[in-house]
């Protein structure tokens, strides 16, 4: 689909295999996550195996506390697994330093969280610029790219406003703009509609779908809402730290 673009992005980063038809974008091998609180250990993830190909739109469902966010944080390189191996574009990232992980998050992954997570002090356009700021792009170019990203989520007129001056749905669209501004090939969205009513939620989901279909961005979506999860093309279910089912979602099953 957009293989050529991804190839170009990938080539400057050492250690990545150029993705071909056989290399999945994300490959988890026996991933485990155990939290220790005092003397007690909580095994939140156990032997999770999962492959995600580029361009996929994967939904993860499961009850609250089943380990969805933990799994997403590991895939998003925010956290390191306590067991197993994680290959991102063919590169083993399970034992990288925190700065190396920061670099990967900056270049490869955009996050959208339930609580929007915008910095209140910064204007909308400054919030969207933030990933570019950390990748060292000159100010002018960064502002241009941020404005382009805001246009994609139909918010080009709100750039100079501040997060508390726009609605929740709009804030979440700003978060989407921030996630895609650096041309990251992957977006991780953890309950992105959790704080929105169903109309605003549907509006936000429309943009994920658009980004996935028009730009070939791989999307991994966590939700416990069946209607939201159904925007994806593939659905996995997590229960007590293991993947219990995996299914292809029929096109237009929703409407």
């Amino acid at each position: 689909m957009n293989g050529k673009v991804i190839k170009e992005r990938v080539k400057d980063y050492e250690g990545y295999a150029i993705p071909d038809g056989n290399t999945p974008l994300i490959k988890l091998e026996d991933i485990g996550m155990t939290y220790k609180i005092g003397d007690v250990s909580y095994e939140v993830l156990r032997k999770v195996n999962l492959s995600v190909n580029k361009g996929e739109f994967l939904s993860i469902m499961g009850a609250s506390g089943s380990g969805k966010s933990t799994l997403m944080n590991i895939m998003g390189c925010l956290d390191r697994p306590t067991a197993g191996r994680y290959f991102l574009e063919g590169r083993d990232v399970s034992n990288l330093t925190s700065d190396e992980l920061a670099e990967i998050r900056n270049k490869k992954i955009g996050f959208v969280f339930q609580g929007f997570n915008l910095i209140q002090r910064l204007s909308i356009v400054e919030n969207v610029e933030l990933p570019l700021y950390y990748s060292g792009m000159p100010s002018k170019e960064a502002t241009e790219m941020a404005m382009d990203a805001l246009k994609l989520v139909d918010l080009s007129d709100k750039g100079n406003k501040f997060p508390n001056q726009i609605s929740g749905g709009e804030q979440q669209r700003v978060a989407i703009a921030r996630a895609i501004v650096n041309n990251a090939p992957i977006i991780m969205a953890d309950e992105p509609t959790g704080n929105l009513d169903s109309i605003r939620g549907a509006e936000v989901m429309k943009f994920f779908k658009k980004i996935n279909e028009e730009r070939g961005v791989t999307i991994i979506l966590v939700s416990h809402d069946k209607n939201i999860a159904n925007y994806g093309k593939r659905l996995i279910t997590v229960k007590d730290g293991i993947i219990t089912s995996s299914a292809i979602i029929e096109a237009k099953s929703m409407i």
Partner: peptide, 12 residues
């Protein structure tokens, strides 16, 4: 805010 900055790629 520190968490947000780290999530979008801020290093130590």
């Amino acid at each position: 805010e520190i968490g947000i900055r780290m999530a979008v790629g801020a290093k130590k």
